[in-house]
């Protein structure tokens, strides 16, 4: 990892939600880096803290949530800005939002205002970060909408969200995210609400645009298929902690954490015939009552009482970390590699 390329460095990030009944540790000591032009995929079930992590990067953790620990270092022009320390309503973070780190959301249905035109919202995005005239901002918007494959972009300027299909709305959101040529695009489940064909089109589009604009993408999803298609590096999260960190090939061909392995087994495959698709036993525990020790142990097929403890993140190779005490015992290939 050449350090000049690092765009964003998250170090030991912790986010807590102070609810009346309990305190929920939504993100519990997550660290990662994002390099310019690369795609980092974050996978996990709902409630694992992946969206909260994304929001923290924009300084947009919702109340009663709070960043309690860690740094979010954003590198620009040789300087590192700690986003975690910025006033979440202040001008600094607001200039980074969209201007340098843009975000698209899961719900294309409701991510656009119901009572403002598409043009109004796109022009607003341009003019918040560039001092250009309204007609110049309009030209930028039309150009980008054409670029993301929207038909008749001029007409869309005066359209409202209810006049657009789901796929079109997400294209509008992507076009809007590109208005200021961000260096990092955070995509929080951008295709979850779309049908499969549209999903494939949007993913293709995002990859093309990534090459063209050389932007980094942080791709959040629960869909491993999407990760395989998009990501360079992958973080698998479970209940606020990363359980496996590796490049995309390692995750799919040498997954070493029992949770990652279980996730992979639960995907239907066309080359293997099975009677029933495997599921992960049990369900995600209530986030107010995270199991002690290894948070995954109640659902783990390799759990041995007394042998697991609280697992650290084990560095099994240069680019591969696994949060499992018994990682060498349950993965023969790793054990073999280690003894060599």
């Amino acid at each position: 990892m050449s350090n000049n390329n690092v765009l964003l460095e998250v170090k030991d990030l912790k986010v807590s939600f102070y609810l009346t009944e309990a305190t929920v540790q939504a993100v519990d000591g997550v660290s990662f880096t994002i390099e310019a032009g690369k795609t980092l995929g974050i996978v996990g079930e709902s409630g694992c803290g992946k969206s909260v992590t994304a929001r923290a990067i924009l300084g947009m953790v919702r109340k009663p949530g709070k960043i309690t620990n860690g740094e979010i270092l954003y590198h620009r022009a040789g300087q590192a800005i700690d986003i975690a320390k910025l006033d979440p309503e202040g001008p600094e973070i607001r200039s980074i939002r969209w201007g340098e780190i843009a975000m698209i959301f899961q719900e294309p249905m409701t991510s656009l205002s119901p009572v403002h035109t598409i043009g109004n919202q796109m022009i607003e995005a341009v003019q918040l970060h560039k001092s250009v005239s309204k007609s110049a901002a309009e030209a930028v918007s039309v150009d980008l909408m054409r670029r993301v494959g929207l038909p008749y972009p001029e007409r869309l300027l005066t359209a409202y969200r209810h006049e657009l299909s789901g796929g079109m709305r997400q294209r509008v959101m992507i076009a809007m995210a590109l208005t200021c040529s961000p260096r990092l695009l955070i995509a929080d489940e951008p295709t979850t609400a779309l049908d499969v064909t549209t999903q494939a089109q949007i993913l293709d589009l995002m990859r093309d645009l990534q090459d063209e604009y050389n932007m980094a993408i942080m791709f959040i999803t629960h869909n491993l298929g999407v990760i395989a298609e998009m990501a360079d590096d992958v973080i698998v999260m479970y209940l606020g902690k990363e359980v496996e960190v590796a490049d995309v090939d390692t995750v799919f061909y040498g997954a070493s954490h029992p949770y990652t392995q279980a996730l992979l087994r639960s995907i239907p495959r066309h080359d293997v015939d099975v009677e029933r698709l495997e599921t992960i036993s049990g369900s995600v525990p209530d986030p107010t009552a995270i199991p002690a020790g290894c948070a995954f142990h109640p659902r783990c097929r390799h759990y041995v009482k007394g042998a697991c403890g609280t697992p650290p993140l084990v560095q099994v190779s240069a680019q591969h970390q696994v949060r499992c005490t018994r990682v060498y015992e349950i993965n023969e290939h790793l054990a073999a590699a280690q003894t060599e």
Binding site: I96, R97, F105, S113, H116, H129
Partner: peptide, 27 residues
Amino acid sequence: INQPYVETARAKGLSERRNIWKYPVRV
């Protein structure tokens, strides 16, 4: 105020006050 379109406006870098009066109040 917790609708995604408000979140989008916030992510765009709109100030909190302008966001509130332009989007959720209007609806």
